[in-house]
Every structure is written in C-alpha cells, then in structure tokens.
Amino acid sequence: MPNALEISNLTASIGDLQILKGIDLAVPFGEVHALMGPNGSGKSTLTNALMGHDAYDTSGSALVGGVEVMGLPVHERARVGLFEAFQYPTEVAGVSLRDLITEMIEVAPDPAAASERTTQASGLLEMERFMDRAVNVGLSGGEKKRSEMFQLAVAAPKAAILDEIDSGLDIDAVREVAELVEALRDPTFGVLVITHYSRILRYMNVDRIHVMVDGRIIESGGPEIAERLESEGYASVR
C-alpha cells in the first residue's frame, strides 16, 4: 500500500540559495500530519516545490498515492491527486468561483462524482453566496480559507497540503477549520497541515508532527511535540 504522500530527499533552491536541504517525510492514507517550523524555515517552499511552482530548482522524489509527481507540470500533479490550500490564496478578478468549480469538475476523473461533492460541500460550508463572486476577491481571511477547503472537497485529492490554514484567523475560525480537516479524514486521503503555531492542533487529532528548521526536518514524533514547542519554542529543538 503506497502512502498518500511520500517525499524523499527533496531539495529546492532559487539560484544559489538552497532552501530545502533534503526532506524526507511520509503521510500514510487516513492520517493527518502537521508540519511546524518558524517563519522562513521553508514550509511554503516545500508546498510550492511539491505543487510544481516554476520558481524553484528541485531534486529528489515525491510520490502521491505511489505516483511520482516531480517533473510533472502543475495541473498534472493536481490531477494525480495533490492539492495545495494556499497560505495566501490568489485573487482571480472577474472569474467567479462557480466558473472555477465548473472547470474543476470538467477535469475531474469522475465529473458526476465531483459535481455531487460540490453540492454537498457547498451546503456544508455555506458557499452558495460566494459562488458568483470573483475567486478570493474581497474575501476576508476566514472566507478565503473556507473557499480553499471547499475547493479541496471538490477536488477530492489523495494528498493535501494546507499551508498556514490557520493564519490570520480568529479562534472560532481556527476551530472551524480544524473541525473541517477532521471531517475530511478518510482512508483514501492524507493531509499535511502546515502551521507555525500549535494553536490549531488543540482542535484536531494529528497523528504525527514534523518540525522543520532551516530547510530540514529535524524532528518527527507524536502530538507531545506540539506541547513542548508551545512552552519552550523552536529553540528547544534546535
């Protein structure tokens, strides 16, 4: 049985600047993992390098449900089953969320099923009122994250990386997002939740926590790591 996400010896650099210095990390199907690390440690770089952003030169391997995605163009990685929820979701002026979702359904492996998921998720997340608004334009921080979670539900990926899904949210919104992630937990799906605060982890049962400092995973373990980081900070693991 392959893992939802399996990263081996992944490096990423921009010009002479190496940001990721060899990452190994696996998220089995059915599990929710957290990736923690101070600002600037390389968490978003990992996300974007996995998704195929062209800013980075990369080496190493990343398997999504056992399929190698490194080297594929961005949209093919998405179609293999990788999803990125953005730390700062991009505004797409003049394109309604409905138009985007329609295109997503069209490229889904099973459009009828994707359409069904859309109806369900739209009801659950109360997205209908956002459907005719431009993607991410004029949305509050919380609304943007909710829209990302909605798109995740429509895409039904094998592996999802939620980059700072809790940033800029008040405590109620953080709890809501955490509960959504828990609700998505599924034997066909693995999640990596990126955060630099342990706050969100109070509301979800993560299976494992990985700590990234300066482009390396320096520690992996159970939920107790979050508690230690909360009381002692990243200095304790350096």
Binding site: H75, V92, A93
Partner: peptide, 28 residues
C-alpha cells in the same frame, strides 16, 4: 503568473487557466 499557478493547482491545464484569466480581465 500567480493566477496561472493558482488555477493550474486546481487541475486546469495552462490553456484553460489563461483563458479563464483573460475572460476575467475583460469582465470588469
């Protein structure tokens, strides 16, 4: 380029992503 990347991350091929963005540009 950011819009193209975002749309492609949703599984849209680059032609579709650009077409959507181009349409959106005129919408206003």
């Amino acid at each position: 380029a950011d819009q193209r990347y975002y749309l492609m991350s949703r599984g849209l091929d680059p032609e579709t992503a650009d077409r959507l963005q181009m349409r959106g540009f005129f919408e206003e």
